[in-house]
Simulated scan of single mutants.
Amino acid sequence: MAAVSAPAVTALAPANPWALVPPLGNLDAYISAVNRLPLLTPEEEQDYARRLKEHNDLDAAGRLVMSHLRLVVSISRQYLGYGLPQGDLIQEGNVGLMKAVKRFDPDQGVRLVSYAMHWIKAEIHEYILKNWRMVKVATTKAQRKLFFNLRSMKQGFKAEALDADAHRESLSEHEIDLVAEQLNVKREEVIEMETRLAGGDVLLDPSPSDDGEQAYGPIAYLSDKAHEPTAMIESRQRDVLATDGIAQALAGLDERSRHIVQERWLKVNDDGSGGMTLHELAAVYGVSAERIRQIEVAAMKKMKKSLAEYA
């Protein structure tokens, strides 16, 4: 029996055209496969686009998408400098391509490649802005324009600069004016975006280093435990016990016990010293210092029980 040869990658004949393209897990194989897929002629593109628009033909949509996968790969290479995996960039670009195919109108008189570029770049831009940094660096239209143009413009300025200025990282005042004029944004916006791009992410709570040493981040000095909810509740409870609670506990003592506790623990003289000693109180009441101590201990136990009930 003659061996059956595998279908050629360049054919767009199978019932399931997606079977021609390997998964993105093997990036080299994926790129090689999509680059071998043939491009559609203008007539074929018009035919598939009309079949999709008029009859919702998903097979036609698949063929339009597949014939432009190489375009997504090509565009994704322009964004490799942001440090994100090319496979992820391609995946997001493919989403933009599918959106373009869905919205493409064959009666507009333009090729799908020209229409799809906007949608592919828009999806890749959004992915980069969401994942390039932990903190989003660009939200307004002007910031987005600066984010995707400032780096290349700075490289152009460096190439034109004299050797003495080649090592300079920041923009000069003249270069800031040029960027603002060319991109039609404010000088302040150029300065702010340059500062954002120059900065890096800092972990609030870094993990310990490989040698076991504790790593300290901003969380160590940014946290304010005084305003932590549990701490605030405990502090408020202490304040209430120190005022109303103690007043109520003292009211439950007899006059002698209350006087002894007040003199021993609650009285502060002008010089910062405390109240009367055991011997001084013993002389006042005509008993021994040991007896004063016993009365004090009993009073403190009674107050402790009263405070616990109050709390």
Rank of each mutant, 00 (worst) to 15 (best):
E309I: 03
A299V: 11
K130F: 02
D163I: 10
D57N: 11
M134D: 08
I295S: 06
M193Q: 00
M303K: 03
M1H: 11
R291F: 11
H279K: 09
E263Y: 03
K154S: 05
S273Y: 06
E160H: 13
E160D: 14
V268R: 10
V297Y: 08
D28H: 14
E126L: 04
Y48Q: 04
D165P: 02
N131T: 13
A122M: 02
L40W: 00
A15I: 12
G272T: 10
A247M: 07
P23L: 12
A299C: 08
A283V: 09
Y30V: 04
R187A: 03
E160R: 14
I75S: 02
D270R: 09
V284Y: 10
E160L: 12
D271R: 05
L150Y: 01
A116V: 07
L241E: 13
A308Y: 09
L40D: 05
V72A: 12
Q214A: 13
S74V: 12
G87I: 03
Q46V: 00
L27M: 14
P229L: 12
A33P: 10
S172Y: 06
K301N: 14
V110K: 09
M66G: 08
A2N: 14
R63F: 01
A100H: 03
S152G: 03
L204R: 06
A11N: 11
F147K: 01
T139R: 05
A283N: 12
S170E: 12
Y285S: 02
L64D: 00
P42A: 11
P106A: 08
